[in-house]
Amino acid sequence: MRQMLAFTLLTLLVLASGLGLAVAVLSLPDAPTDLAARVDAGLDDSGVSHPVTAVLLNFRAYDTLLEIGVLLLVLTGTWSFGLERRLDPEGPVGPIQAELVRNLVPLMVLVAGHLLWLGSKAPGGAFQAGAVLGGAGVLLVLSQHPLPAWRHPAGYRATASLGLLVFLIASVATMRDGRLLEVRGREAGLLILLIEVAAAISIGAILAALFAAEAPETATSLDERKEPQP
């Protein structure tokens, strides 16, 4: 009875907050500054011609830098739980799945590269490319391929932190008069491409590792399981 009452009360409260939110959104005044116009005005000097990429990697590059840091923190956190991946939950991988993954993963890497390249002038970029790479990694994990660097934990850690490292080094190297991440012109285009390549690789590696959940040290690679080391 008390629980029913609490449930009803909670529902009413959520409904009221929803109504309040709706009223607030409907009565919002027009934006005081036209951000779209300001982005357009700065676009020529940003190094890329796609506004969203310009915002992500130039005008508000701080956000992106910290976001890649957050991803790395999440990976560190997940690895610290000491979870184990059940390596073969449903028995061995069938031949069709194995063949499909063998053909699909290189194609996905190509698609990721294409998305990355597109990012400077059309929808696409490091995040989408990283997501496709991560998807390829998930496929590898599901078909019991150990991720390439599972055998070299240090290498995997380096791959996962590459994005943040390159981003940090690039932003410090281009720092002028104490102003961080304010690069304009042609130089910016090259810098953005460099950062995007590194970020996409790291995002892909991190997303795949988050799916696998286990830390590389605790992973037993398939080779080791099949033929025990002498």
Partner: peptide, 26 residues
Amino acid sequence: APDIALAEAAIGAGLTGALLLDARAR
């Protein structure tokens, strides 16, 4: 917002879905 559409299809539906299905099984 085609940028977000691309990311959502790959991440929101794909990766999150894989994570959730895996977690449910465990």
